[in-house]
Amino acid sequence: MTPRSTLLMQSARPLYWMLLAAALWILLRGHNEPGGGFIGGLLAVAGSSLLAIILGIPAALRLQPLAPLPLAMVGVGLAVLSGLAGALHGLPFLTHLWTGIGLSTVMLFDLGVFFAVWGALTGYVYALVDAGETAP
């Protein structure tokens, strides 16, 4: 690996957590305002990519809940489950259910999208970073 700036190495992890916090905030904000799982997921991908480029892919993988492909697939699974909840009540697929205090299956769907984007895109980013590191 080529030598990197100490400042960058030291700030990578704090920056990652800040990006992840922003990602979660955007995810939850999407409930009533612009935001949501997709754009939140993209922010999380930005955080993971930062770690992968500065500290290497293993460091980025350690701070991700699951490896990219399983993470993406858990996300898809959550989204499918959230859609099936409505179907169990005899409503069309993806009809969402709401409880009184604002919790809903939409949240689950958005969380699924968040994981799917985070997993799928980091998979591609790590592959590219890896190819860049190993290339002559």
Partner: peptide, 15 residues
């Protein structure tokens, strides 16, 4: 749509 999606999820989790 759903059957292959669910299959994809299951096959990915059986690492």
């Amino acid at each position: 749509l759903l059957i292959p999606l669910i299959t994809a999820v299951l096959t990915a989790l059986l690492t």
